[in-house]
Amino acid sequence: MTDLSAFLRKITALRGLSGDEGPVAQAVFEAFLPLCGEVTVNAMSSVIGRMGKAGPRVMITAHLDEIGLMATVMEEDGAIRFTRVGGVDPRILPGSRVWVYTEEGPMTGVIGAMPPHLLRAEERKKNYEMAALYVDMGLPASRVTALVHPGTPIALHGPLKTLENRRCAAKTIDDRGGVAVMLRVAELLQQRELPAQVFFVAASQEEVGGMGAETAAYALEPDFGIAIDVTHGEMPGCEPDDVYPLDKVVLTEGPNIHPILHKHLMDLAAKHRVDAVTSICPRVTWTDAASLQIARAGVPTALVEIPLKYMHTTVETVSMDVLDEAARLIAAFIVGLDAGWEGLTCF
């Protein structure tokens, strides 16, 4: 079995902002190649790996894109103004180190802002506006304009750190942690006659609207969809209903999730001793489960979530044990599909 924290350390560092997922897609393609009968990278840069020859079509998806920044305008002094790709929290930016993906390869930059001692007292009490920030590459303006153009992707530094209790902190565990779960599921299903056709989809562009999963679901026409994403782990100052213990697998319930499928996964968790809890979402979930559910004529969909602290920062923290447990549950679902599977799709 792959060491998932080593795998996570590698793929969280790879280039792959939403819309620019080529490099990370290539790495995921290579990781799934020995495990799946067939792996492709489609025109939207989603990776699709297939196992199993017959039975219901199950699409399992985690997204491989990361949030970050994009250069817009180069100032006369070489400072690079930027916009966001996906929901980067501007509060984390001042003083961050970044990778600028220039024409000559990745180069380091630092995010700068007006120094506090030059601000008025009342300005110091407010967070910096993104328009006041810039990337400083430590280069003269003429070099900057040769290397960087509007649209150059800029990614945050966030290498993986190992903490106590098998917890890890890194950027982009949302949702490359989900991709790691999929890898483990594929490993658990090796050397078996499968009762289903399984499609692992490492989807692109979830952070900017979910187009990767939407188009993959259209092409694959699945009978079931399982999205793997992250939810908020317990942090101070939060409403109790909005956060979950870091060591539990979270299964969502609500209009976006097929109720029978949810119950079935909860029953499987109990049977296989996976420590799982329910989260309630009264609206469309902000994950690929949203587009999965309404693909073509509709897909019974479930959402499996990994609790994660400090989402959309560069120190996203999860428990590696929960990644294994989530994989165990999903593998049990697949292996347990039998001739009566259509009963799980009815109303």
Partner: peptide, 10 residues
Amino acid sequence: VKDSGSISTP
């Protein structure tokens, strides 16, 4: 390269 509607396919 990008707007809020789409990111041009490379």
